[in-house]
Amino acid sequence: MQAQAELRHAEHSEFVSFTVTGQAFCLQIKQIREIRRWSPVTVLPHAPHDVLGVMNLRGAVIPIYDLSARFGLETTEASERNVVIVVAVQDKPVGLLAESVSEIISINPDDIQETPAVDSRNTMEFIQGIISHDGGMVRIINLEAVISVPEQVF
């Protein structure tokens, strides 16, 4: 029953599109927990350049990634205009810094095209597929590839 409902749901999925250094990306709406306005984070010492730091999300410490830097684009100078998209990767909340959120788009899975081979490993790894929307191209992010949760260290 439930599986069927999900299937029907998948026929037309809702995606949230946003821009990262001028390029359009999107994530499935159900992957997103919430979207927050950027506020300064706490810097993590020795962190890689695409990890901005950590922030307090209702008592949980969550890491914030700079999507732009993660995609090999320029490092974002975060400001109040930017947004943090909170997603869950393996049940752990993670924040992704994006320039701004654009809109919610409804996508028929049939319209998703495979990512054409380009000479960039990052792109191939991080992008699940592309869709054509409003005359432009929107890239569907492969969340699991973008964010790997560090293993529990005991």
Binding site: L44, P45, A47, V54, V61, P63, K92, P150, Q152, V153
Partner: peptide, 27 residues
């Protein structure tokens, strides 16, 4: 004490984090 396990890998010099009165996280 808020553990950083699962948030980031081991950070040299930092054992965990906490949340301060202003809501900010501190190492």
């Amino acid at each position: 004490i808020k553990s950083l396990d699962g948030v980031c890998g081991n950070i040299d010099g930092v054992s965990a984090a906490t949340i301060l009165g202003d809501g900010k996280i501190a190492m």
